[in-house]
């Protein structure tokens, strides 16, 4: 029975010391496998490992750092959408660029998020230490040529379905996970829907009115301010 009760005094933000120690610990265990890391004080820790070390990273988390709880595995496609950032402009960009094919994408640079990266696809996963109540997000680049990284299922069996989902949504495969049937999509579905160059057909057919829709609320006296901030935002 849990008798730990509750009433913690105004939870102080978890100190950076904790996460710095975690990072040092992780580096100590994995050594060369680590490519980069990002630490946001009081929030979270991102560690990017080399693709080959992706599986070893999970083992390190599970067996050496006590992260028993498997949270998730997913992937991200860093390529900016070739169809434009549709909500970004007052007129849906697709209306203007209806006939422009994917080459529009070449212009926009790929910008990776925390902990950097070199490739278009990245996988990221997370595990949590439920005893000490912290979690680490692990990232890895997915090599462009093979589009595959080692699997996590030998460490976290719960990763199996997540990897199947990533496979069908992004086309990233996982070495060692043989069961790569489609999880959500119909068996004969073609393409990888979560990739940025996979068009969302409903949106292609009927552009979203998007930002044009935003109206001032009745009784709202801050409209000028709102408009100001909007223009600020647009100019940024």
């Amino acid at each position: 029975m849990a008798d730990t009760a509750t009433e913690e005094p105004d939870a102080p933000p978890p100190s950076d010391d904790l996460r710095e120690a975690l990072l040092a610990d992780f580096v100590g265990h994995l050594g060369d496998g680590i490519a980069d890391s990002h630490l946001k004080p009081g929030d979270d820790l991102w560690i990017r490992v080399n693709p080959d070390a992706w599986g070893a990273a999970a083992e390190t988390l599970r067996h050496k750092m006590g992260c028993q709880f498997f949270d998730f595995v997913s992937a991200i496609d860093w390529m900016p959408s070739p169809y434009g950032r549709e909500m970004d402009a007052e007129v849906d960009t697709i209306l203007a660029a209806a006939n422009v094919e994917v080459e529009a994408a070449e212009a926009a640079p790929i910008v990776q998020g925390y902990a950097g990266g070199e490739t278009r696809f990245q996988v990221f996963g997370r595990a949590i230490n439920v005893v000490d109540k912290w979690g680490i997000t692990i990232k890895a680049d997915v090599p462009e040529d093979t589009l595959s990284v080692p699997t996590w299922i030998n460490t976290y069996p719960g990763a199996a379905w997540h990897e199947r989902e990533v496979h069908e949504m992004f086309g990233v495969s996982f070495d060692g996970n043989v069961d790569m049937r489609k999880l959500y999509l119909p068996t004969d579905f073609e393409g990888y829907p979560m990739r940025k160059d996979f068009p969302l057909l409903a949106r292609r057919v009927k552009p979203w009115p998007g930002i044009v829709d935003v109206e001032g609320m009745p009784g709202d006296d801050d409209e000028e301010e709102a408009a100001e901030s909007a223009t600020e935002g647009a100019s940024e």
Binding site: M1, T4, T6, A11, K133
Partner: peptide, 20 residues
């Protein structure tokens, strides 16, 4: 209890139940 940021759980008296 363990990550109550943005919520008011740490303001009240309650208990986490577990079963073995």
């Amino acid at each position: 209890r363990d990550a109550p940021d943005g919520m008011a759980y740490d303001e009240v008296d309650w208990k986490v139940w577990t079963h073995p």
